[in-house]
């Protein structure tokens, strides 16, 4: 999923770079509200977590396996702004320390996986959460749908960039169909894994799931007296 150098032409890469700089700048302002001054250590640890999570291979069968992209997962766990920051730092470190994704394509990668992946994921989560009953468990289907939709949307965004700044004269309709078809499948896998991870965290530490916090405030302490139990 990491776009390498030379996949898009220089003007498009510079344009996505500008979009990424503006997006990350906004995220820096927004993240202060989500995490206060603990941002640096916490976001750093969450970035290390996202990076480690991408190393877990999920077997698909027939000897193939895939790994999580983590955009919607990060949005659900730490909120959209911190999520964008975390994904951007992960991509930056991957580009500079692991040569994974080109440096000139960093803006493209941050735009697609950071801004679009986290942003669309979060928008869907908020929408679904509003439609479902106000229970912490509602976050699980919300995050799943967020993951399922954000992955093909990011793929469609990539196709749009390829239409503008791609280096080949390929039939765009076919590329769009192939990209969206393939990434809908990937998105389904991402949705299942995201749902499983979120449900395991919600079961033990619902207070750590950012998307569940507004629902958590609704819960009140229930005191059961012996008469009420009997």
């Amino acid at each position: 999923m990491h776009v390498p150098d030379g996949f898009l032409d220089a003007p498009t890469s510079l344009a996505t770079g500008t979009v990424a700089v503006v997006g990350v700048g906004l995220a820096l302002r927004g993240a202060r509200r989500e995490l206060d001054e603990r941002t640096a250590p916490l976001a750093g640890l969450v970035a290390a977590f996202v990076f480690a999570t991408q190393m877990v291979n999920f077997p698909v069968g027939a000897g193939t396996s895939g790994h999580l992209l983590g955009g919607a997962l990060a949005a659900a766990l730490v909120g959209p702004w911190t999520g964008v920051l975390v994904m951007s730092v992960v991509l930056l470190v991957q580009a500079l320390l692991f040569a994974d994704g080109g440096l000139t394509a960093l803006g493209t990668n941050i735009t697609l996986m950071g801004l679009v992946g986290v942003g669309v994921g979060w928008a869907v989560i908020v929408l679904v959460r509003a439609l479902l009953p106000r229970r912490t468990s509602s976050v699980v289907p919300a995050a799943a749908l967020g993951a399922a939709i954000s992955v093909p949307v990011a793929a469609a965004a990539f196709t749009a960039l390829f239409a503008v700044g791609g280096v080949a004269d390929v039939p765009l309709g076919a590329v769009l169909t192939a990209m969206i078809g393939w990434h809908t499948l990937i998105g389904l896998g991402e949705a299942v894994i995201t749902a499983l991870v979120i449900s395991s965290v919600v079961a033990t530490r619902p207070d750590l799931v950012y998307a569940a916090r507004p629902l958590l405030a609704d819960r009140s302490l229930e005191i059961r007296t012996p008469e009420a139990v009997a």
């Binding site: 603990r38 250590p41 290390a48 877990v56 299942v192 979120i198 395991s200």
Partner: peptide, 28 residues
């Protein structure tokens, strides 16, 4: 881990990893 039936186990381990990482961030 052989096929998608084992995903819940892997996902729980990722969930535990998140809690550990987040709590480590707070302790730090």
């Amino acid at each position: 881990a052989r096929d998608p039936r084992h995903w819940p186990v892997l996902a729980k381990s990722i969930g535990a990893l998140f809690i550990r990482s987040y709590e480590r961030g707070e302790r730090v």
